[in-house]
């Protein structure tokens, strides 16, 4: 009997742990009673806290809301779509003025977005898109253009090797296979360099957006390809891992092998200052300010463009030192 009771307790504990992963939207503003005090109320359903980039994204939204005098109801979906749908339904019940969210996945949003539409609450997508056929379900999409980021990386490469006709061997570290940033950054880059036959991508493998994999794959590249001129990494973490591999192979990153990276995290700027990365194409998570502007416009009934791009830059070694102190993530 005692054993049986203990087993039930253990099972309850397991259930408790698993269900504790879902969180109810919590009010972080001064009041939880809708817009009774005249303040605009924004319900924001975040993906989760899976990376430093995402944490910076969350922080930016929180700070911008406070600065703009907008009451923020924030929900963390822990990378699960059902949590996010639940959070959006709660926002609808609480009658917020506007809902913003970064969809965990692309599909399966029609029902809940229709509920929001019927309740007359405008929806703004941030950072990631949905593949819904009915475009009236959301007002605008604020986020980075990953294809453009790939193109920027390609443009830098073309400019760097302007005037030479020698072949340039490029190796590519792709992001997680099938993810939108990986697909688009690859496509954008290939699109720009295909115009010149001297550029040749000799190897392209996934590094899963992580430092450990980036290093492991780069180490294999260095052994199977004698003359690598350029490394193009789909994010900074993979580039930072690969730099270690290049150094261990007795070569100088940034000189013997030029390094192009995307994202713009602080560590990458440090590496750029040390001349180990040549160029970083920014993928900016700090979209809070732009989001608050859009939210105000949408609620006021003003027209907004269907697609708003986040302000992003391209940073080279010369600008790294100046930009480093201002990097927030």
């Amino acid at each position: 009997m005692a054993h049986r009771a203990l087993r039930i307790i253990a099972a309850a504990l397991v259930g408790g742990v698993l269900s504790a992963c879902t969180t109810e939207p919590a009010t972080t503003g001064t009041t939880g009673k809708g817009s009774s005090d005249g303040k605009l109320v924004l319900g924001f359903a975040q993906v989760g806290a899976e990376s430093g980039w995402r944490t910076a994204n969350t922080k930016s939204v929180r700070e911008a809301a406070e600065k703009a005098g907008i009451t923020l109801k924030f929900s963390d979906a822990q990378q699960k779509q059902e949590n996010q749908i639940k959070a959006i339904r709660t926002f609808i019940q609480q009658k917020v003025d506007v809902i913003a969210f970064s969809p965990v996945v692309e599909s399966g949003w029609d029902t809940v977005l229709k509920e929001a539409k019927n309740a007359g609450i405008p929806v703004i997508l941030t950072d990631r898109a949905v593949d819904s056929q009915d475009t009236s379900l959301y007002r605008t999409f604020l986020g980075s253009d990953f294809v453009k980021e790939g193109q920027e990386a390609g443009k830098w490469l073309v400019k760097e090797y302007e005037g030479t006709s020698e072949p340039v061997n490029v190796v590519e570290l792709q992001g997680t296979t099938g993810s939108a940033p990986a697909n688009d950054r690859k496509a954008g880059f290939a699109d720009v360099i295909k115009g010149d036959p001297k550029f040749k991508v000799v190897a392209s493998q996934t590094g899963d957006f992580t430092r450990a994999k980036g290093k492991e794959v780069m180490q294999a590249f260095l052994k199977s390809h004698e003359d690598i001129d350029v490394l193009y990494a789909h994010n900074d973490d993979m580039a930072l891992g690969a730099i270690q591999a290049i150094e261990e192979a007795g070569k100088k990153p940034g000189v013997d092998i030029k390094v192009i990276s995307v994202d713009g995290i602080k560590d990458a700027f440090v590496a750029m200052q040390e001349k180990k990365i040549n160029v970083v194409v920014e993928c900016n998570p700090l979209l809070g300010g732009q989001l608050m502007e859009l939210a105000k416009k949408v609620v006021a009934g003003e027209s907004v463009p269907r697609r708003v791009e986040v302000k992003e830059g391209v940073f080279t070694q010369d600008e790294a030192a100046a930009a480093l102190p201002g990097r927030q993530y």
């Binding site: 792709q174 190897a203 392209s204 493998q205 996934t206 492991e216 294999a220 052994k223 199977s224």
Partner: peptide
């Protein structure tokens, strides 16, 4: 896989 260049897909 890395050395042979098997496509990630």
């Amino acid at each position: 896989i890395y050395t042979l260049g098997v496509p990630p897909e």
